[in-house]
Design a protein around this nucleic acid. Structure first.
Lengths: 235, 235
DNA sequence: TAGTGGTCTAGACCACCTC
DNA sequence: AGGTGGTCTAGACCACTAG
């Protein structure tokens, strides 16, 4: 981290996870934390605010900060941005790719609108099945404008998280995503292997934005709902 | 609001909605906002932080704060807590209740775990179909411990938002909820009227917590996905 | 009543963007 | 180089909780 309050927040999370503070217990007071970390009260308060936003503690005025109960649930909500790769790993499964295809084509109307393109732009389509413990769990389709990565993208791409690839090879950071969640109806274009799993599917449509709020890429994910569960924290 | 920075945040939202600041445009600098509202810089920064958390602006160091594009999407994410009543109204539909049933029973194992109950506790079950423009859109089941509302709850309950009822008649505020989203498989217990809609369904399982992080009630919602769409903002 | 968190201030220094 | 946001400080007053 580059700033003091994120450091302190990370330290406190580690200590909570290690059991130094038990669930339901009160944390040291702001004043005590100030002297322990040798920072001002506002800095400590920023750390605690972050901890609250992460759902790890809650504050009660006049009383103190308390460690929240963490059902396995709370730990892996989709509120924080994460790639499919991370989702699979969070469920303690091993991630892999199958049948990766990359090709170029013109964007359709929805893609033009969501990615802020012109009709003469060209997009790459990355089409693949992703596996957890060698079972196919997601059919995933990423739509990435050529204007962002250049014509040689197919040579630069490597299996795994597209987000990670964009960050490492292009210096593009995904700061935010907007996801629509749909119940799957009959989708003829679903690949055979996923259809055969015969388990319920969710469809995620996500637009991924950079730090300036500009759309970077679009993704469609058809996810099996029997191996991975999805939680949202609402505040 | 009770504090200055939320006031200012609300004022700025109103002004953005009114078009005083256009999408993509820069807001006045922190310093300018300080003198306009006659508050210190930290107070303005708290307002702007709130605005960022709501997804209405983003900040760029060294440059300024910019108004975010708001597809119809961004405006109604489920990140912020809202009752089914509000969800329906946000979609510009008229909300109603059908076939409301309330009864008492023992909690099952999942309810005991999620609501932190003992096996000898008793819960109220509020079972109803909710409508949008007179079409059934949700089959909704709320599980509410008698220990929270007392034995006379059925007389006090009125159709509409349970959250609102708890707030108005019991002074209980829901501060947070944890929701699991599932793809619906065959659910025999689904009511006839919703089954007959023959449209895809999502299942939401939510635990609702008060400000101290204690569970208040549990809800199961089987939602039609053709009249209402669901968005999540991930950061 | 004493202690705790919630809000607010005034000022400082730094990192980054823009010209 | 000047302007902008990002971090941090030290101190004040208030609202709420708890003994």
């Amino acid at each position: 981290m580059t700033n003091r309050y994120s450091d302190i927040c990370a330290t406190l999370i580690r200590e909570i996870d290690q059991g130094l503070f038990n669930e339901g217990e009160r944390l040291p007071t702001e004043k005590e934390l100030c002297s322990r970390f040798e920072v001002s009260r506002e800095t400590i308060r920023r750390s605690l605010k972050q901890l609250i936003e992460l759902g790890r503690i809650h504050g009660i005025q006049g009383s103190g900060y308390y460690v929240r109960r963490q059902g396995q649930h709370m730990k892996s909500t989709i509120n924080r941005f994460s790639s499919i790769t991370e989702l699979i790993r969070n469920a303690n499964l091993t991630e892999g790719d199958l049948e990766v295809q990359i090709f170029k084509r013109k964007p359709d109307a929805q893609e033009i609108q969501l990615l802020d393109l012109n009709s003469q732009d060209v997009v790459f389509v990355i089409d693949r099945i992703r596996t957890a413990n060698r079972e196919p769990v997601v059919y995933s389709k990423n739509i990435l404008p050529q204007s962002i990565v250049g014509a040689d993208f197919p040579e630069k791409f490597e299996p795994g998280s597209l987000t990670k690839c964009l960050s490492q090879k292009y210096g593009i950071t995904i700061a935010e995503a907007l996801m629509e969640i749909c119940a799957v109806t009959d989708e003829d274009m679903l690949p055979y292997r996923l259809k055969m799993s015969n388990s319920p599917l969710l469809k995620f449509i996500q637009v991924h934005y950079d730090a300036k709020g500009a759309p970077v890429f679009l993704s469609y994910d058809f996810m099996r709902n029997d191996m991975i569960r999805f939680f949202v924290r609402r505040t």
